[in-house]
């Protein structure tokens, strides 16, 4: 038996924060500036990218946590996005008067009600989805993928059954419309709001994960669920909670996304899922921080490419993913696992 451990009191390396992925973001934005050529356009595109990135983050964060915690990849996550957006119309369309009134307070009240309902419904749906669809197939990746994909199709079709086959327009509330002129650049108000909401969600999530016992348990569970159980905690309950929260966040993301597009389609969830998957692969499966940076990267690239070479906008994200995986095969922030 050869001792391999270091002596007890050797000085430890200082805790290293992995900065490199954080630098990619400004580097990308700066590299795009000369390609785009015009500073105001660049500002508009960058803000648009950040807004989109925040929304994608909100949708993707729950998915990546659920995967990290329980090794469950829910291909039906996009259904919660769609259901969230459509549920919001149950409030927003009857309250059109409040939405279009020239009063921030009335707009916000209507919107808050819609968001609360959407998150409540998607959270509840998440709970049911977990019980009925996912629980029987724990630990069986193949069946998980197939079943959750099937669940997604059914949910999407049910949207058609309930809301009919047509697209539903969802106008922005009056006070969120229009743009702020900032020098030569026009910045849409709603994009700023989306950035703000995204930041709030990120900070809240960060605080919960780092400052509360539940958060510590979630982080511990991502790394070693068995040990969390051996310490006397029911990881299953933790998991259901995270699943519900993740679904509700997807619902919130759906409302934000629907208002951003001002048009709802039953396929909106599955369309955005393509970007969400790219984001969580880039970020490192299970990593919330990686998911955040990944979402911003993907959205910025999508916006810049959409302006520079519109025909290959989505393909550009595939290229981004390939580049990142060549650099870090497990994603930006790989999660230590068992």
């Amino acid at each position: 038996m050869t001792p391999i451990a270091t002596p007890t009191d050797a000085e430890l390396p200082k805790l290293k924060l992995d900065w490199a992925p954080l630098l990619v973001l400004p580097a990308l934005a700066l590299a795009a500036l000369p390609l785009i050529g015009s500073a105001p356009t660049w500002v508009t595109l960058t803000i648009a990218g950040l807004a989109m990135g925040m929304m994608i983050f909100i949708m993707a964060s729950g998915l990546t946590l659920v995967f990290g915690l329980m090794d469950v990849l829910n291909f039906g996550h996009g259904a919660f996005v769609t259901v969230g957006a459509f549920t919001a119309t149950l409030v927003l369309l009857p309250m059109q008067g409040w939405m279009q009134a020239d009063s921030v307070l009335m707009n916000l009240t209507a919107l808050s009600l819609a968001v609360a309902l959407a998150m409540g419904v998607t959270g509840l749906l998440g709970w049911a989805f977990e019980r009925v669809i996912i629980m029987p197939v724990y630990g069986q990746h193949l069946k998980q993928i197939l079943i959750t994909m099937g669940g997604m199709i059914v949910a999407e079709q049910m949207i058609h059954v309930v809301w009919g086959p047509d697209q539903i327009p969802l106008p922005l509330p009056a006070s969120f419309r229009g743009a702020i002129i900032f020098g030569d650049a026009a910045i849409e108000k709603y994009r700023l709001i989306a950035v703000a909401v995204g930041l709030i969600v990120f900070v809240a999530m960060f605080l919960v994960l780092n400052r509360t016992k539940v958060g510590l348990l979630i982080r511990a569970g991502v790394e070693n669920g068995e040990m969390v159980e051996a310490l006397g905690y029911r990881i299953r309950r933790l998991f259901v909670g995270v699943f519900i929260a993740g679904s509700a966040l997807a619902g919130l993301g759906g409302v934000l996304w629907g208002l951003y597009k001002e048009m709802l389609t039953a396929a909106m969830g599955s369309e955005i899922m393509v970007l969400v998957f790219i984001v969580i692969i880039i970020g490192g499966l299970g990593s919330v921080g990686g998911c955040f940076i990944g979402a911003l990267l993907v959205a910025l690239v999508a916006n810049y490419a959409g302006f520079l070479v519109p025909k290959i906008a989505l393909a550009s994200n595939i290229l981004l993913m390939v580049a990142i995986l060549l650099w870090r095969p497990q994603g930006l922030y790989p999660v230590a696992k068992r």
Partner: peptide
């Protein structure tokens, strides 16, 4: 079964 992402304090806190 150490949670390497958590601090020493946090590891003990969970226990």
């Amino acid at each position: 079964g150490i949670f390497s992402d958590l601090t020493v304090r946090e590891n003990l806190l969970l226990a």
